[in-house]
Amino acid sequence: MTSNASGRKNLTFISRRSPYGSGYAKACLDMVLSAAVFDQHVTLVFMDDGVLQLQPNQQAGDIHAKDLSAALAALPLYDVDNVYADRDSLTRRGMFSDQLAIEVRLCDADKIAEIIRQSDVVFTL
């Protein structure tokens, strides 16, 4: 899982903001997709308010915004398959892991700590 001679790095993105309150969530996704296009080894972790991006049935058009969860659904098409959601953050926000907008792997703090340690660069936003 460490970087190798091919120039591929382990880039981890910790997305920890709600989808529409600021531009951070969208910016994080844009960075993830760009990193994937450049063939980097990408891991995306939803933590804290970031898990709110996973709420199903978002009707962002009602506030004249683009639906972020629809864009998240494109992650597999960019071969971003390492997508995690922090179980504790979900629980604290009354969200159920079997009712999320996209398929994610659940993780705990130990797993996030491990992901960070195996990363070359970590972005939190």
Partner: peptide, 12 residues
């Protein structure tokens, strides 16, 4: 903010 809480959760 929950920053320090989150940081302490994953700091090793």
């Amino acid at each position: 903010s929950d920053l320090l809480t989150s940081c302490l959760r994953v700091a090793r």
